[in-house]
Design a protein around this nucleic acid. Structure first.
Lengths: 130, 130
DNA sequence: ACATTACATTCCCATATGGGCATATGTCAA
DNA sequence: TTGACATATGCCCATATGGGAATGTAATGT
């Protein structure tokens, strides 16, 4: 099998740089396809296809206005991604503090008995199934 | 051209469900490849390949321990994703409040003169280049 | 040096895209 | 109804994967 279909979820949808660009562009206000095409300098069919993908995963909403289709980012659909990344927040904080300690130790060579930080040993944390 | 290479950035890397699973699994503590294989029920070559991708974009770190390779999630590399999703936080909050208003209006039919929320009109916000 | 363990790579193949072009659709203006 | 606009789709092609099997490689034990 190949990669999971791009249309399957928000994670795949935002993996495309242009789709992120589109989401950023229409986050504030709904816009017709043509404006997106002009602003981002992409082909019209290309933009329509990207919008279709974004629509499928719920990342954008559409509304018809005459012959134009007004798209707008549906920010709520981005929450799952935000939440997933948030679960790592505590980790990068720990890691940052360790980096900080190392830096300080370097400036002040006196051994302050701080914890080790480079190449952690095993068993310093519970390893039961995530 | 086809999709941008998966190895190009964190967004593409985490688009793969298994890679996210791996990141979750080794977020707390470094683990040898074999353990990841057993725990996630994936093929060994497959896991090695995913780890290689994650390593390239900096989402994991490695350390050799005898014949084993201990991988661990480098949470900091996830910050960019977290920050990107955060830029939409204010939007989904607005959207949520609008949904809330609609719900309240529905329960209390008296027109409170609140703002429109369904199908916004054009020009209600500056539309200059993002 | 040889067998074993733990991973990393390489090959091959089916499939998912993404872009550009041409064309089908839907809508509004005469 | 005909013509012009604004989008959406279909088609074709080059390319990027991802998985599984087989094989290469590094490190350990005897």
């Amino acid at each position: 099998m190949a990669r999971a279909a791009t249309t399957s979820d928000a994670f795949n949808a935002v993996a495309e740089p242009r789709r992120r660009a589109i989401l950023n562009y229409i986050a504030l206000e709904e816009r017709p396809v043509g404006e997106i095409v002009d602003s981002l300098g992409l082909g019209q069919p290309s933009v329509s296809k990207h919008l279709r993908v974004l629509l499928r995963v719920g990342l954008v909403n559409v509304r018809r206005d005459g012959r134009r289709m007004l798209y707008r980012t549906n920010a709520q659909a981005i929450r799952p991604l935000h939440e997933w990344t948030s679960t790592f927040e505590r980790y990068w904080r720990h890691q940052l503090s360790r980096v900080k300690e190392r830096a300080e130790r370097k400036n002040n060579p006196s051994n302050d008995g701080g914890p080790e930080f480079t190449s952690r040993r095993k068993n310093d944390l519970d390893s039961s199934k995530n």
